[in-house]
Amino acid sequence: MHESLNLLRTAYGGLSDVLSSLTVEEGWLPTGCAGWSPVDLGFHLLSDARRALVALNTPSSGPADTNAVDYWTAWQPPAPGDDEELWSTRIAASVHGGLVSIAGRYAEASAAVLVAAERVRAGELVRTQGRVLPVADLLSTLTVEAAVHHLDLVVHLDRPGPAGGPLAEVRRVLEGLLGRPLPAGWDDGTAARRGTGREPLSDADRAELGDDADAFPLFG
């Protein structure tokens, strides 16, 4: 089993455990995604797992046009006027049976992604969202997505955050986007939050980063 699959298995397992542990009341608390509750975020994660299933079953003859790092250059924080996505996610989530149903469907879909990933080689090319990339790189993007949203999910919850391996993968991608190491004083959770704009840079951060501070958030 290649390392990218091991990381995704860890990321999906931790996230599924948290989603399935939430009470109905906790499902309506805020998250790190402005305007989304755990119900909304859970539906977004379910949609991403379903997309992963499609991608793993959509081979491409290539050539690859992105990789695990460059993939994220297309994803920036929501701009003013992007409230439509927030509302459409909430509406869609509301017809999926609530938190318990969404958590169960996410557990099923994410488990199916892992089975599908075991059946393809790491270097095979697949297509997703109009891009072509190797399977191992796709799995990295899924791990990063899961780890960052795991952080979002537990902002106001007494639940464990993502495991060290997936968070280290987030840091690796952020450093690839920046083209240099992130500050050594940031642990991987801090790197994930600040690198994606979920936590503002301090004056000390900006002084250490210099002109590179203007590149933040590196994706969102």
Rank of each mutant, 00 (worst) to 15 (best):
S140I: 14
L8P: 13
R9Q: 14
I91E: 10
T66H: 03
L19D: 12
N57W: 01
E108V: 15
A184T: 12
Y12L: 01
D17M: 03
R90Q: 14
A215M: 05
A68C: 09
T128I: 13
Q129Y: 11
G35E: 05
P166M: 06
L41D: 08
R171C: 03
T10S: 14
E118P: 01
G81F: 01
G195D: 04
Y106E: 06
D83F: 05
L178A: 13
T143P: 07
L15Q: 06
E84I: 10
V18H: 12
G210H: 00
L22K: 04
A215C: 13
R131Y: 09
G35A: 07
V18P: 01
A192N: 01
I91Q: 12
F216A: 02
G176L: 02
T89I: 14
G220P: 00
V39L: 08
A79L: 11
W87G: 08
S16E: 11
V95I: 07
E175Q: 06
A55F: 10
D82S: 15
A117G: 09
V173P: 04
D203S: 14
V39Q: 01
R180V: 00
R51A: 14
C33I: 05
D83T: 10
L86F: 01
E175D: 12
L45M: 14
T66A: 10
W36G: 08
A103W: 03
V39N: 04
Q129T: 04
A116H: 13
A68I: 00
A215I: 00
A49C: 03
D48A: 15
Q76Y: 12
L182D: 07
P166F: 03
W75I: 15
H156K: 09
A93P: 10
L114Y: 03
A122I: 07
G62S: 02
D82R: 09
R159E: 14
V113W: 06
D203C: 01
D152Y: 07
R90Y: 08
V120Q: 09
L182K: 02
L139H: 02
A107K: 07
L153G: 07
A192F: 03
Q76I: 09
A55I: 05
E118V: 01
S60T: 08
S60W: 10
L45G: 05
R180A: 11
L167K: 05
D48G: 03
I91L: 14
A204K: 10
V148E: 00
W72K: 03
P38T: 10
L45T: 04
Q129S: 12
S140D: 14
D65L: 08
A103N: 07
W186R: 12
H149A: 09
A146Q: 00
G220L: 05
D203R: 14
P134W: 02
P80N: 04
L45P: 00
R193K: 03
N6C: 07
T196Q: 05
E84D: 15
R90A: 15
R127W: 00
V120F: 02
S88M: 11
G130T: 07
W72V: 06
A34C: 00
R180I: 00
G32Y: 07
R90S: 15
Q129A: 13
H149S: 09
